[in-house]
Amino acid sequence: MYHNEMKIEFPSKSQNEAFARVVVAAFASQLDPTIEELSDVKTAVSEAVTNAIIHGYENSSGTVTIKCSIDGNKLTVEVIDFGKGIEDVELARQPLYTSRPELERSGMGFTVMETFMDTLEVESQIGKGTRVIMTKSFKSV
């Protein structure tokens, strides 16, 4: 079975969100995706990276790590921060829940990740950080 992987680290600057998205897209393009499949992955990555920057590090400086792997036709993307962590992951994942309504966020980030990817896992520890693990299988057409 075909396997490949990569890991990338960058500082939690908002301008790196677009960069992160294209890196994951370039890696995923090995799977010969459709426009829609790739756009789904890019949207999910954007949400996860934005969360790491604005919630995990609260716009202070820190490092965001993305690990990607391909196994057969399945893409796994992990977005990791070493920021403040999430107290109640189940609550955070609820549609429309946001801890920072003053930012005019939609509270739909995790819902978007769940919708656009096949699976979503969130591991988090207060003061240690958060790891979001998403997978998506690409159908060859």
Partner: peptide, 24 residues
């Protein structure tokens, strides 16, 4: 079109045999 997408598209002309279809 975003700069990032321009960068990606230019690569598709350079080496499609690497970036795409590797597993197919």
């Amino acid at each position: 079109i975003t700069s990032e997408d321009i960068v990606l598209s230019l690569e598709s002309l350079n080496a499609p045999e690497y970036l795409y279809d590797t597993i197919h």
